[in-house]
Amino acid sequence: MSPTPPPFWRAALPVVVCLVLTGCSSDAVDAASDTPGGRVSAPRESAKDAGPDGTGKPEGSEPAAAPVQLSIASIGVNSPLMRLGLNKDGTVQVPPAEKGMTAGWYTGGAAPGERGAAVLIGHNDTRFGRAVFHDLKTIRKGADIAIRNDRGAELHFRVTGTETVSKKTFPTEKVYGATDERVLRLITCDGAFDAQGHPVDNLIVYATRS
């Protein structure tokens, strides 16, 4: 472990299709902070795709069940799920450092179990020590990921693979792109540290509905 706390996703970078990029920081992240380091990407919902309430659901349809608890027995993860939206500057919110043992669900994507990519974000470490996704790098293909939603249902996903990517070349479309499948992505920081103590990579775990 580096004596310098690793960063979490923060900085924004505009691109043609209005993607939102966020960087990794162990400190609580807000729009005013200037955290250097790599990036994780999340696309904005387009007006074309969003429903009247901004969720992408047709008017009058029942909203998707929200995830409230995440369990990965094989690596000892059992965490409530907080909701993560967008900051005022368009960057994706992340769990604050003081809630490092709590993962978050990005509400701009699909809800787990719905068609599309559901994205969960968690710290690896914060200035307070190890965090919820500290051992995510040890997860194996075929591992079970269980998510309980606010209607009491427990959904299961099977890990299909993992990928470590440079934060400079984060595969936005692969992670957040539209799909008819019911898939799940877990994201945290990973890799070596740069000269400023920032991890240079992201770890992505891919899973499909069991």
Rank of each mutant, 00 (worst) to 15 (best):
K99N: 13
A64N: 10
S79I: 11
N78G: 13
S71I: 13
A103P: 09
M82P: 01
S74K: 13
E59C: 04
E59L: 11
L86D: 05
S61C: 06
P96R: 13
A103R: 06
K99V: 00
I72W: 07
Q93V: 10
N87A: 08
V77W: 06
R83C: 01
V77N: 07
L84G: 01
S79D: 14
L70W: 07
G85P: 00
L81A: 10
G60P: 02
P67M: 02
G85I: 01
L86K: 06
T91F: 00
T102R: 06
P95K: 05
A97V: 03
A65F: 03
S61K: 12
Y106W: 15
G76S: 09
V68I: 15
W105L: 04
V77F: 09
G60T: 03
M82H: 06
P80Q: 12
P63W: 04
A73R: 15
S61E: 14
I75F: 12
W105G: 03
D89N: 15
A103V: 09
E98I: 12
P67Q: 01
L70D: 05
G90R: 02
Q93F: 11
A103N: 10
A65Y: 00
L70M: 11
P80E: 11
V94L: 12
N78L: 14
G100F: 06
P80F: 13
V94K: 04
P80S: 12
E98H: 14
E98R: 14
K88C: 00
V68R: 07
G60K: 05
A103E: 10
W105P: 01
G76L: 08
Q69M: 14
W105T: 04
A66L: 09
L81T: 09
S79K: 07
P96F: 12
T102I: 15
Y106S: 03
N78A: 15
P96V: 14
G90H: 00
Y106Q: 05
D89F: 08
Y106R: 09
G85Q: 05
M82V: 14
K99R: 15
A65M: 01
E59P: 00
G60D: 03
K88G: 03
G76I: 08
L86H: 01
Y106N: 08
V94T: 15
V68L: 07
A73L: 11
A73S: 15
A97T: 06
L84E: 00
A97M: 04
G90I: 01
N78S: 15
R83Y: 09
Q93D: 09
G90L: 01
D89P: 07
P95A: 14
